[in-house]
């Protein structure tokens, strides 16, 4: 078994177990910490696929900024295990069964698909994930969506301030 496969299976197991613990944790703070573990595992997958820019941005934006925002809001609300609302058992069972049915159907679809048979996602090589290549493409072909996203950020900032303002 090559080292790439070992890393792939380790990161996959880490991501899936951490994602299950996000859903199962009773305390919201523990859920946030497990979600950070999921993001680090997914960043490891990006590094394995040689998508270095996406890996770094995933760590900085998701694990760094967004999850700290979640943690701040949780700490402000002072939530803990005792105040955690629970659905009743039948609702939970129904949710798990319906989600599992969707998973089984989609996996059987993937196993039957002939278009992707024998295709491989190349690991460790290829230079389309490097910052130089991505930056050139972003500032030439995709410069209009890039600039529009700045307007989106401005409107999100104004919206957050207006919604959060005490009146």
């Amino acid at each position: 078994m090559a080292i790439t496969e070992i890393i792939f299976w380790f990161l996959s197991a880490l991501a899936v177990i951490s994602a299950i613990m996000v859903v199962l944790s009773k305390s919201p703070v523990h859920s946030v910490l497990w979600l950070i573990a999921v993001f680090f595992a997914i960043s490891g997958h990006y590094v394995l696929l040689n998508a270095q820019f996406i890996a770094i941005v995933n760590i900085i934006v998701y694990a760094g900024a967004i999850m700290v925002l979640f943690l701040f809001v949780l700490m402000l609300m002072n939530l803990n295990k005792e105040t955690e609302p629970q659905k009743n058992l039948w609702m939970k069972l129904t949710g798990v069964v319906s989600g599992g049915c969707l998973l089984i159907i989609l996996i059987s679809l993937v196993r039957q698909a002939t278009e992707i048979k024998g295709k491989i996602a190349v690991t460790k090589t290829g230079d389309i994930g490097l910052i130089k290549v991505l930056g050139k493409e972003l500032f030439s072909s995709y410069v209009v969506p890039f600039e529009i996203s700045s307007v989106l950020f401005l409107s999100a900032m104004i919206g957050a301030v207006v919604i959060g303002k005490k009146d």
């Binding site: 996959s12 899936v16 994602a19 919201p28 939530l79 949710g95 798990v96 319906s98 989600g99």
Partner: peptide, 29 residues
């Protein structure tokens, strides 16, 4: 790695997210 492995991993993560939306009542979760 074969592309099927990545598709199935992404599907598992996606369905765990769907199950979490269905079974939790905490808005932040």
């Amino acid at each position: 790695m074969p592309i099927q492995y990545y598709i199935i991993l992404a599907l598992v993560l996606f369905c765990i997210g769907i199950i979490g939306v269905l079974i939790r009542r905490n808005a932040i979760i």
